[in-house]
Amino acid sequence: MASAATWVLAEFKDEAALCAAARRLRELGQQRLDAHSPVPLHGIDEALGLRKSPVPLIALIGGVAGVAGGYLMQWWMNAVDFPINVANRGFHSPPTNIPITFETGVLLASLSIVFGLFALCGFPRTHHPVFETEGFRTASVDALWLSAEVKAEDAEPVSRELEKLGAVQVSRVPEGL
């Protein structure tokens, strides 16, 4: 990462303008862009060139691990390591193993989803440069913001470009403030 980066933040009034601005900045070679909004936006993934989320794959891996682990645990504990005969249900008793296998599968899949989500989003994170701009706080309420992490020398031209693209307000946060 460049040592002196600057965050350029621009507020937009509508979705289309925001997406257009994102596309334009990418054309200009700015890749470290992000959009911030109170609700998910349509078409923004495409405008920012974001790929499909890996969360389903993470969930699948977690689920399979949970199912396999849950079943093996019961088999090993009740049939191998500590065989116990209850009501002659057999040491290895597949029907009685199903409920817990299901539960461990769901549990591990869910934990993988949530912690996978946290890892992908970099949570928990207590601070972020964008919060230095007090106006940016509207991003979670009712405003749409575009953020661009640019080299210090690019901050000026990018800000001007964003204003041209219809930003309502533009502000800059130098990294390391």
């Binding site: 923004i44 993934d45 769901v106 989003c121």
Partner: peptide, 24 residues
């Protein structure tokens, strides 16, 4: 946790939420 309503957050978030619903 540092939620910034970022497009990157939403992208993972929406699918994660839907999958959690599917499991729940």
């Amino acid at each position: 946790l540092g939620w910034r309503g970022s497009a990157r957050h939403w992208r993972h978030y929406r699918i994660a939420y839907l999958l959690l619903a599917g499991l729940a």
